[in-house]
Amino acid sequence: MTLLDILYGLIFQPQATMRELARTKPLLAASLVFVAVYLANMLLQQASRSITETGLGLLPASLAGLLGAVGAAVSVAIWFIVAGLFSLLAEIIYGYGNGKGVLTCLGFAAFPGIFGPALYYASILVNLEPLGMVFYVISILWVIGLQVLALREALTLTTTQAILVYLLPVVMLLGILVLLLVMGGLALSSLPLP
């Protein structure tokens, strides 16, 4: 499968493509796509702001460039951590993990994310900003759908199981947050009154 085949497949035959990607695991290509999409999005968002913002709140190009580079590094790190977490959760719950497969599939799942900022920018250029917002939301939902599909194919799960694994880290994070708040509240209430 060439890179063009993969990109075409992600748009028109996502299920078969994800299955193939989970099997062949082209991690280098996935990394390239992931970083390229991130940087392109950063550029497109900055370009959109340069037209719509008043300028006083606009991020200077040099700072945007710096943030883009730092953000790309951070997002790659998050991508690795999240892929590892998903694989670990699937292994604990369902007895099967596939770290490299999940990493590769999640990397490619970011690809449709470029369409949101790109079409939003294009819509601003032709004075159809509300339509651009719709494209943006569709693009986000598309990426989420592909990420769930990525988990399903890479971890050989059912759709329900994949959704569960996908949502579990968020649920756990919320749980920890609530626990910390409760503990903090209890600690504060046990302090002697002045």
């Binding site: 550029l43 497109l44 900055q46 370009a47 037209i51 790109a118 920018y121 294009a122 250029l125």
Partner: peptide, 13 residues
């Protein structure tokens, strides 16, 4: 094409 236009927008608002 959009990316090239975006580069232009960012460098020359």
């Amino acid at each position: 094409i959009l990316l090239i236009m975006a580069v232009q927008s960012v460098s020359q608002p």
